[in-house]
Simulated assay, not measured.
Amino acid sequence: MHIGMKIYYDLHTGNVILNTGERSGDVVQTTREQDFEVYSSLAERIPETVGMLELDYGAYAADRAEGGMITRIDLETMEPLFTYPDPVDPEAPQEPRPALSKQVEALEQETLLLKAQSGALSERADFVEDVIAEMAVQVYE
């Protein structure tokens, strides 16, 4: 059995309180109430002030492999925000941002759109050049 991670976060700030991590093998899915009993970081909180985001097993694996840590939840989109270690200064604090994998996806989509637009503009320019050449031939005849 594979169980994805649960991210518990402060409902007012989005800051992560607890990441349960992924589990596999002979494991059992726990309830929110059980987690509040088992984890001290949750037990000391008022349950109504804590949100929970459940992720599928393997979600954001590439981001985590790159050293990304979920540190906040975007309260508008309900997407996890990551911090990644700075290769130059690993100790420097980082501002949470969307997952790099999501940013790459968005850039790939934008690249496809830009390529299509560029192709259409190129075809239009070729057409305009052909029209101008035909007009020039007729003017000089």
Rank of each mutant, 00 (worst) to 15 (best):
V28W: 10
G21P: 09
E48F: 11
D10V: 06
V131T: 05
V16K: 04
L112E: 13
Q117F: 02
Y9V: 03
L75T: 13
N19H: 04
A133E: 13
A106Q: 13
Y39F: 15
E129T: 11
E123A: 15
K115Q: 14
T111N: 15
G51I: 04
Y39W: 15
T83A: 02
M69Y: 02
L53Y: 06
D35M: 02
V131L: 15
M52K: 07
G25T: 08
I46E: 14
R72D: 01
E76F: 09
V128P: 03
I46Y: 06
T13G: 11
P80S: 08
E91V: 10
K115G: 03
E134S: 02
T71C: 14
V137S: 08
P98V: 13
M52H: 04
V28N: 05
E33V: 12
L113G: 01
S122Y: 02
P96H: 06
L55S: 01
D56N: 12
D63A: 11
D63S: 10
Y84K: 14
D10L: 11
V16S: 12
K102N: 10
A106P: 01
G14H: 10
T83E: 14
A133C: 02
L107Y: 08
I73C: 04
E123M: 06
V28Y: 04
Q109M: 13
P87N: 10
P85L: 05
V139K: 15
G67K: 04
D35W: 12
A92G: 00
L107P: 00
T13Q: 07
E33Q: 12
E91R: 04
E108P: 00
S101A: 10
P93H: 01
L55W: 04
L107S: 08
L11K: 15
A120M: 14
R72E: 14
V50F: 01
L18W: 04
T49E: 14
E66W: 04
V137G: 00
T20H: 06
D56H: 09
D74T: 07
E76D: 15
G67S: 08
E108L: 13
Q94W: 06
D56G: 13
G67C: 02
D86C: 00
E134I: 06
G25E: 05
I7G: 03
M52V: 15
R72V: 05
V16T: 12
L18I: 14
V50K: 01
D74L: 05
T13R: 08
D74E: 11
L107M: 14
A61G: 02
A43C: 01
D89V: 11
A62T: 09
A136E: 07
E95F: 07
Q117E: 15
T111P: 00
N19E: 14
Q138F: 06
Q34L: 05
A65C: 00
R32D: 10
Q138I: 06
A62K: 11
A99G: 13
L114N: 09
P98E: 09
T77Y: 05
L112C: 02
T20I: 08
V28T: 12
I132M: 12
E110V: 01
N15L: 13
L11Q: 11
S101P: 03
M5Y: 04
E105D: 15
T71G: 02
S40I: 07
M78W: 13
H12I: 03
D35E: 11
L18E: 08
K115Y: 14
F127M: 05
P96M: 04
V16M: 03
L81M: 09
V88H: 05
T31W: 02
D26Y: 13
D10C: 11
R97G: 06
I46R: 12
P85M: 02
P98I: 10
A92Q: 04
